[in-house]
């Protein structure tokens, strides 16, 4: 088998695997149940909560990711390798473990002090945002770093000799040149946050109309053998995720977020 045929076969196998998984939803799909579940107050709450929590978590993650990625991409400093390695922590540690670590943290004196004097996180919406933020922050920084690594530091160096401050040099050269990469990083971060389950359920629990995000809703419906309801939830989650990714690709293709 030629290399091209082998690679194409691998690509179609990957597609087929995901397609079969999505197509199998149709087996349990019920049109009547779809509208009933979709328009229920509980489902609309879950959709709103998921979008809101994922958007806040993504925003916070990007706020931290851009300077973190910039430091890792542009400077040499003590502990750089350690920080770089820890960015992958959410990828190598199970999300449930991340959630458990958060729970453990809030049972330490510092965590209890934060909960008492600042904000209650355990079993609240804030806990969902925190769980999603912790899970995606490292990934966001890694993605932004990849985008920054593509831009030669020389542009900023020249900008500085032309009178730009360090921040102005970044804002006028590197940032516009990698905005497409940063935008893609933000979209992927958001998509990962909206699908986050393990850490969320560990710290925020499964309380209908309180901490029930879309993935939690799927789990709760499966727990009571409501397969048709779970299929509707999965379908909605798939629709939101794929639509956002597709729109992002379209926008990038049109050049709205391109460098020129």
């Amino acid at each position: 088998m030629k290399l091209k045929q082998f690679c194409l076969a691998a690509a179609f196998t990957t597609f087929l695997m995901y397609f079969l998984l999505m197509a199998s939803l149709a087996y349990f799909f019920s049109g009547e149940r779809f509208w009933e579940v979709l328009l229920s107050e509980r489902m609309l709450f879950s959709i709103r909560l998921s979008i809101m929590a994922a958007t806040i978590a993504m925003g916070l993650a990007m706020l931290l990711a851009v300077p973190t990625a910039y430091a890792l991409s542009r400077y040499d400093f003590f502990g750089k390798t350690l920080i770089d390695t820890l960015l992958e922590l959410p990828m190598i540690v199970s999300p449930a473990a991340i959630g458990a670590m958060l729970l453990i943290f809030f049972n330490t004196p510092l965590g209890e002090w934060i909960q008492t004097n600042f904000q209650q996180f355990v079993f609240t919406v804030y806990g969902i945002v925190l769980a999603q933020f912790v899970t995606v922050a490292g990934v966001a920084a890694r993605l932004v770093k990849s985008a920054l690594d593509e831009i030669p530091p020389r542009y900023e160096a020249v900008a500085r000799t032309l009178g730009a401050s360090t921040f102005a040099a970044f804002r006028t050269t590197t940032l516009p040149l990698c905005r497409r990469g940063i935008f893609a990083a933000a979209i992927l971060t958001w998509a990962k946050a909206i699908g986050e389950f393990g850490a969320t359920i560990t710290i925020a629990g499964t309380m209908a109309m309180r901490t029930e995000t879309m993935p939690v809703a799927i789990y709760m419906r499966l727990a009571i053998s409501d397969i048709k309801g779970a299929v509707v939830c999965i379908g909605i989650l798939l629709f939101i995720g794929i639509s956002v990714l597709y729109a992002a690709r379209l926008i990038a293709k049109r050049g709205i977020y391109a460098g020129n």
């Binding site: 030669p152 500085r160 000799t161 032309l162 730009a164 401050s165 040149l177």
Partner: peptide, 20 residues
């Protein structure tokens, strides 16, 4: 002094013209 305060002009080997 930082580069922006040195009042000099610099042209690197790759020119580094801003592509955007």
């Amino acid at each position: 002094l930082p580069p922006e305060q040195r009042e000099l002009a610099y042209v690197p080997q790759d020119l580094a013209l801003f592509p955007h």
